[in-house]
Amino acid sequence: MRAAVFQGPGEITVEEVPKPEIESPTDAIVRVTHTAVCGSDLWFYRGESDRESGTAVGHEPMGIVEEVGDEVRSVEPGDRVFAPFVVSCGYCEFCRKGLHTSCVNGDGWGGDNGGGQGEYVRSPHADGTLVRVPDRHADDEETLESILPLTDVMGTGHHAAVSAGVGEGDTCIVIGDGAVGLCGVLAARRLGAERIVAMGHHESRLDIAEEFGATETVSARGEEAVERANELTYGGANHVVECVGAASSMDTAIGVCRPGGTVGYVGVPHGVTDEGLDLLSMFRDNVALEGGVAPVRAYADELLADVLQGTLDPSPIFTKTVDLDGVPEGYRAMDEREAIKVLVKPEH
């Protein structure tokens, strides 16, 4: 089979790799029909995080079940499924409490399971990982493109908003205009926020934020951005959604959070350890920090229900579509900010 492979910083190739096979009675083999390039993929693409050369990449697969192990009960060959970005067993202590990303039997995509940006993946713990799409929606392309973000960015944006405590009638500030930030706006609206201030640096993306429910936008940078957001919200918000992970964005989040408020953070931390976090400001103003890597599987069923009933549609985050051969171009486009998120259709 063919799959996208990381060769080194700035270099993704599409190679022939072994097709994954059933290795455990709890496995399933899925033929990938839709997947995506994620903003977090850019860390290794840019050489800013470690990844072994020659490894398959991608972690947002959707497709058709081709084969299942003898102990798989929740899906069968022919089912349309999608998979959260982390493999989870569904029955350990942490899965039972909804923290699937800490599953003691968990795994990632890549290596010998095929990677998410390829023709096939092997899903370990299929019953705990795969989410079945009802048959009546299984071939509706528009619906499928709305479901695909539930593999990662929609669930991640939702986790940020939930962690920030967003509820009915609240004012919320969302930091970041990438796919996760835009999904954070959608999530805040879904949870009932009355005012949503979206902060980012790209006017075209902030236009999408407004389409998703942002009531105001801030495109300034640095201290000017903090001042503008605080001016709009009369001193900041009790609920701040941080979707970038850079030290500067964390500083902004703390700067726009009202005393006693909560920052819900899901941006993969980058540079925060080296540059530090303004804990004194948080301490002084009783600002709470909640969040972390999103347990997307915990939210998948409720978000899927909303997509299927037509009340949630994150698909506008896909601004470029490629086939499998176009994956290297997809990485380049995202790296150079020419695309918000790239949809990959291996069979396109």
Results as ranks from 00 to 15, higher is better:
residue 5 V to I: 12
residue 6 F to K: 03
residue 12 I to T: 07
residue 13 T to S: 12
residue 13 T to M: 05
residue 17 V to R: 10
residue 20 P to G: 14
residue 31 R to G: 08
residue 31 R to W: 10
residue 35 T to D: 03
residue 42 L to G: 02
residue 43 W to V: 09
residue 47 G to M: 11
residue 48 E to W: 14
residue 50 D to P: 14
residue 51 R to Y: 15
residue 53 S to L: 09
residue 54 G to N: 03
residue 59 H to C: 00
residue 65 V to G: 05
residue 69 G to T: 09
residue 74 S to F: 14
residue 78 G to V: 07
residue 80 R to C: 08
residue 80 R to A: 11
residue 82 F to W: 01
residue 84 P to Y: 09
residue 89 C to A: 03
residue 89 C to V: 05
residue 90 G to R: 10
residue 92 C to I: 06
residue 93 E to G: 12
residue 95 C to K: 06
residue 96 R to H: 14
residue 96 R to V: 15
residue 97 K to T: 14
residue 101 T to G: 03
residue 102 S to G: 10
residue 108 G to V: 13
residue 113 N to H: 04
residue 119 E to Q: 10
residue 120 Y to D: 00
residue 126 A to I: 08
residue 126 A to M: 06
residue 134 P to E: 04
residue 144 L to K: 03
residue 146 S to W: 15
residue 149 P to Y: 10
residue 153 V to Y: 01
residue 159 H to F: 08
residue 160 A to E: 04
residue 163 S to E: 11
residue 164 A to L: 04
residue 165 G to M: 00
residue 165 G to Y: 00
residue 167 G to T: 11
residue 171 T to I: 07
residue 176 G to E: 06
residue 181 G to D: 02
residue 182 L to R: 01
residue 183 C to H: 05
residue 183 C to A: 04
residue 185 V to A: 08
residue 187 A to N: 02
residue 189 R to F: 08
residue 191 L to S: 07
residue 194 E to C: 08
residue 194 E to K: 13
residue 199 M to Y: 15
residue 219 S to Q: 07
residue 220 A to Y: 12
residue 224 E to F: 12
residue 228 R to F: 02
residue 232 L to Y: 09
residue 237 A to L: 07
residue 244 V to L: 01
residue 245 G to F: 00
residue 246 A to Y: 14
residue 250 M to S: 10
residue 256 V to L: 02
residue 260 G to T: 02
residue 260 G to L: 00
residue 273 T to I: 12
residue 280 L to N: 11
residue 288 A to M: 00
residue 299 Y to D: 01
residue 301 D to Q: 13
residue 308 L to Y: 07
residue 312 L to Q: 09
residue 312 L to E: 05
residue 314 P to M: 04
residue 317 I to V: 12
residue 318 F to A: 02
residue 320 K to N: 11
residue 322 V to R: 06
residue 327 V to G: 10
residue 327 V to P: 12
residue 334 M to Q: 09
residue 334 M to I: 09
residue 339 A to Q: 10
residue 339 A to M: 06
residue 340 I to Q: 02
residue 341 K to D: 09
residue 344 V to D: 01
residue 345 K to Y: 15
residue 345 K to E: 14
residue 348 H to R: 15
